[in-house]
Amino acid sequence: MRLTIPPLLAGAVLLALAAVLNLELASGALSRPYDVLHVPAGAPARVAALGHRTTLSDLYWLSTVQYIGEPRADARGWEKLFPLVDLVTDLDPRHGYAYQTAGIVLSAAGRLDESDRILEKGIEKGPRWWTFPYYLAFNAWFYRGDFAAGARWAELAARTPGASPNISHLAVSLASKSGTPEQAITLLRELKRAVHDEATAGRLDEQLKLAYLERDAQALERLVAAFRERTGRELRDLDELVQAGLLEALPPDPFGGRYVWVASANEVQSSVNPFRFRLHARRHRPSFQYQLPRGLTDPIPPLLRRPDPVPEASTSAPWTPLPGLETPPP
């Protein structure tokens, strides 16, 4: 009995020491946002999986889920999301949900080119999901102002089995360069029905807010024009619309700020988010950001700078109306 007590005590002391050190290590790791240090290339990973490709794909997918769900993701950045999902879909090209989730999250993070690439890969190698071209249409139209490309993708989405009839209407509308914010809202709501997780739905909600913002701003600008016509003078403040009886009350800003009239830009803006739909040439980042930059006290002036509008969007490919939808629906 005496012989067993000293080793037991020593074991207990060493275990306690190890636990303290381990907790110290864990606190260091937990203080940083979840990140992935290295993402292997798809081709060697396929070989190294030794017949367990879908399982390896799932393990990297679980890592991707944590990467997306990290609460401090915006501070960390999204550099590894595309390589991770590229690897997941190299290992298992039929993993449809991976394409869809990455397409939405990358777009919401402002990484439009990567969003397009993963969605196009989904169309080429993945299952036939209408959501891939549908979201490509949204990227092209809403963020890039490229009606022609948006119409092409919307047409492809409409032709994919299981697609909603609303998509055909959107395709026709985009082809005639008359996409409206209401259609963007419908499009995003359609996509939200195809999403089964909160993280991706949250990203779609962020983009829905942009569509609401655009819808409200356009409606307010129409009222500003009516105000000018009625009074023969320029509007100083949006509250004047209420005072003139043109509006019961100003709609709430979906981003938590307030709508303001910016006379120099001749448009309505949110006080906390500079996004407005623009027609412009292809560029990597969309002309918006979700949060008010830190330390900004005057919400308007720096956010109002916008790229010069390009009068005509891309006309690279001719538009062919969908069979049976040669004329736009009423």
Binding site: G51, H52, T54, T55, S57, D58, W61, L62, V65, Q66, H95, Y97, T101, H196, D197, E198, A199, T200
Partner: peptide, 24 residues
């Protein structure tokens, strides 16, 4: 339990892990 960590397609995680464990 592991499949609860994902979102979307839990079935595939259960099947993949189950069959891979059995095969391995």
């Amino acid at each position: 339990t592991i499949s609860a960590l994902t979102f979307g397609e839990q079935y595939r995680i259960i099947v993949d892990l189950g069959l891979s464990s059995m095969e391995l």
